[in-house]
Design a binder for these strands. Sequence first.
DNA 1: ACTGAGCGA
Length: 85
Amino acid sequence: MSLQIYAGNLSYGMADESLKTLFEKFGEVSSAKIIRHQDTGRSKGFGFVEMPNDEEAEKAIQGLDGSEVDGRNIRVNRARPKRNE
DNA sequence: ACTGAGCGA
């Protein structure tokens, strides 16, 4: 149904929408979110993106992994199951 | 947290 993608080494200023926009260059994005601390609410520097189309997702991974975003080379890969999926 | 390796409930 969807492929979940891990995006790390993001700038702390990266917003969910910005992350989504990045992946939308390669295809449809159903959701994108930055993981942040509960207390402070600030970014942890990584996030997750969900793409319905597998081939687009892999293209996005290849296309975005190592690419420079906001001055940093981001890390993109398939996400591990967070708990059970 | 003003930072910097990280895979989230």
